[in-house]
Design a protein around this nucleic acid. Structure first.
Lengths: 205, 205
DNA sequence: GCGTCATTCAAACGTTTGTTTTATACACGC
DNA sequence: GCGTGTATAAAACAAACGTTTGAATGACGC
């Protein structure tokens, strides 16, 4: 409910009603409403970390790694079959930061971002910590986040429901191919498979 | 105040106090709180449209148009010298849509988006309304929006303050160059009367 | 001067909010 | 059985919210 309606709009009465608990329970167990929110946030990115860290094979060519990373990220953001409140809660925390944001950044966002930067570094032969690589990574993240950030607007601009389950892998293909096209000139020899390296790995349902 | 604290958290009493007006004025002039919000939203994107529509020269080469569009968009989002509440308000409306979102989409977002799609169409020779062009446009928007969406996180990931005034043009350069790199293969020559219609081989399967 | 209208103001209204209180039910050691 | 500590329940609490009321103010035409 915090994810869906925001901290302020989610009332303890509704939360307790949905949980089948008494209103006084939140004060009894968490001190106050914000204590409950912090607890929710904690289990949120515990869950998030456990789910995502797997899935990007370290020995595959970097093109495939990029496709796998984008796919994992988009599934985490959009897959209707997994709890949507996880990414929604983090989105909210970014747009409207509470004192709890720092913890989310260090424990959940940075490791994932560094992983992506590593893949781009491997693709281009540049240093993972370089400004250029990190800005490219930001561009990749931006292309993914917009789908979670304003799906309603995108549905209207594209004329389709982006959030539908089948579309996710298509989106991941499109994003990673676009990124690879953009990096074409910078790509170094070994893994060079003319953009096809990333294909065919999709876990289509 | 709606932009800074959200519709719900901004109270009528605070707004009226800051405006030097009486509390009953909002009921008298706007009907209720939401009427006031809609009025604010209206002047917001009136202002927004007036400011942005200028500046993208229609007769320049499409590469320059793209750079101008991105620059204008990023300045609108980030320039600390112009009122920040404008883009913040729209961001909020996207993340947490109210019944007023429809109006914002049609009157403010869509014209701007179509303008970008037109530029990409001119760059690649594809139809402005095609799915491919519109998805490329979404990618451009995504790369820009992320800077307004979660500046705090980006500062931490990049190790610099992205919002500083001097950086905006650098960012615009980086984004438009990255996009042009990604469209390289699709670009048609500067002699721009080349064949109309769908350019043979689609990238999409 | 006077009535009329639009506007402003302080006060009050009825809800809803997060939180606290008070009472009750249950489990366990002795 | 009994006291003790823990968990749940319903009710009450004060504060804050959006909104309404009714009186006061001022300008204007006649």
């Amino acid at each position: 409910m915090f994810a869906e309606r925001g901290y302020r709009d989610a009332t303890v009465r509704e939360i307790c009603a949905a949980a089948g608990a008494n209103i006084a329970a939140v004060s009894y167990y968490f001190g106050d409403k914000f204590g409950l929110y912090r607890a929710v946030l904690r289990v949120a990115h515990d869950e998030s970390r456990r789910r995502h860290m797997s899935g990007v094979p370290g020995d595959a060519p970097p093109e495939a790694q990029l496709r796998a990373w984008v796919g994992g990220f988009l599934r985490k953001l959009l897959d209707p079959e997994r709890p949507q409140w996880l990414p929604r809660l983090m989105m909210r925390e970014m747009v409207e930061p509470t004192p709890a944001l720092d913890e989310v950044i260090e424990e959940s966002i940075r490791p994932q971002f560094d992983q992506l930067a590593g893949i781009i570094a491997a693709l281009t032969g540049r240093r993972r910590a370089s400004r250029w690589v990190r800005e490219e990574a930001v561009a990749v993240v931006g292309q993914c986040l917009i789908f979670r950030h304003c799906p309603v607007v995108l549905d209207r601009m594209l004329g389709v429901k982006v959030l539908s389950a089948g579309r996710i892998e298509e989106l991941a293909d499109a994003v990673s191919e676009r990124v690879l096209r953009g990096l074409e000139k910078e790509r170094r020899g070994p893994g060079r498979v003319a953009g096809r390296g990333a294909r065919g790995r999709g876990v289509r349902p």
